[in-house]
Design a protein around this nucleic acid. Structure first.
Lengths: 139, 139
DNA sequence: CCATAATGTAACCATTATAGTATCATATGA
DNA sequence: TCATATGATACTATAATGGTTACATTATGG
């Protein structure tokens, strides 16, 4: 899947914001902690913004804030925002003349759906507030 | 994750073999059903062979057989053979000077481990024999 | 009103993974 | 000995991702 570091970086970025939820956090600050480029952070947070997980404001004193309280953002929300097609489920081509090939797609879709139905509740169990609680205290 | 079509193609190939377990199946035959190249199939089945899921023999009348009965090959076996690093778990870099970054890796490892612990039993529930049962009857 | 500082975006390059392809060595069975 | 198969290597093409630069836009504060 395009299973990536995007999920990991997204959680990391959100945790940084959630740790001090009243301050605005700029992409440069977050990028420094993640050890990447500010543009990469802005691209990723743009996805999270579309999902309502963060809000941004421009200009001096601008930056990012959470879109809702950390207790109401779960890791599943992040996963959904970032992994558009799910961790699994790639299109497989298959020769339509072959009866086995014709059935495989539906069969695998079923498998993936069942896996997803186990993954989702597990990810929903952990909120961003839970993550922040397990981080070192501020200062 | 390098979440890929590799898992899907592997299940497809194994199902073709398992449907007629007493015949040898060549890479050309399997490639035709999957609509890809025989070399791609041989590369993939080489991975499955290392995991003991198939055996091969060379020469005329050569080809692939299952390494053990279809009832004793689960989708989890296939997933492990094909997705070396798991669907999740990418290395994230992080700035070691940042206390949040230092904790993120361990924290995410825990999340991924818990997710994996839900995925594994679900994939173990389905054997290759189950897959074959859901395919159209031979002939 | 201007300098500063931030996001939003586009463009481009590098890297990586994967698939596809051609080719040849090797092995096997009739 | 010939036909046929895997095993292995090498090369190309493609797509996703990440990194970088650059610039337009927007907001704040003096």
């Amino acid at each position: 899947m395009a299973a990536n570091s995007r999920f990991a970086v997204a959680v990391h970025a959100l945790a940084l914001i959630a740790r001090r939820p009243d301050e605005r956090h700029c992409s440069r600050e977050i990028a420094a902690s993640v050890a990447t480029n500010p543009v990469v952070i802005r691209r990723l947070l743009a996805q999270l913004q579309r999902a309502g997980l963060v809000r941004s404001s421009r200009g001096a004193e601008g930056g990012f804030l959470l879109g809702r309280p950390a207790a109401r953002i779960t890791l599943y929300d992040v996963y959904r925002a970032v992994e558009e097609g799910g961790f699994f489920a790639r299109p497989e081509k298959g020769n339509d003349a072959c009866p086995v090939a014709r059935r495989m797609k539906g069969l695998l879709d079923g498998v993936f759906a069942r896996v997803e139905s186990k993954v989702a509740p597990e990810l929903r169990r952990t909120s961003l507030a839970d993550v922040v609680r397990r981080l070192p205290a501020r200062r």
